[in-house]
Amino acid sequence: MAISRDDVLHVAKLARLALTEDEVARLGEQLGAILEAVGKVSELELDDVPPTSHPLDLVNVWGEDEPRPSLPADDALANAPERDGDFFRVPPAAAVETP
């Protein structure tokens, strides 16, 4: 199963990865081979089998709703690549048009 360049670029966009041209070519090839191997799961007829999302049968684990102090802002921001007061600083989420 070959993965087209468009498919690789589409998935990379969903995954927020700015792949280089070289990576697009290499990943297209490797993902094709891996998907062909893992696609083996479709050989089994499993219409009546329920899916497992979790190995234990835990349902509704409740905890007491007790207020606790939260992380001080200075601690929460200690690893910030860029900080502005009590905020994480980032570039604009969308390109801003200047009039």
Partner: peptide, 21 residues
Amino acid sequence: VRYGFRAGGATLRELQERTRD
């Protein structure tokens, strides 16, 4: 955004995509 390595970018999306790549 909050911790670890950050690559530059003109928009948030560009920053995130470049950081992850």
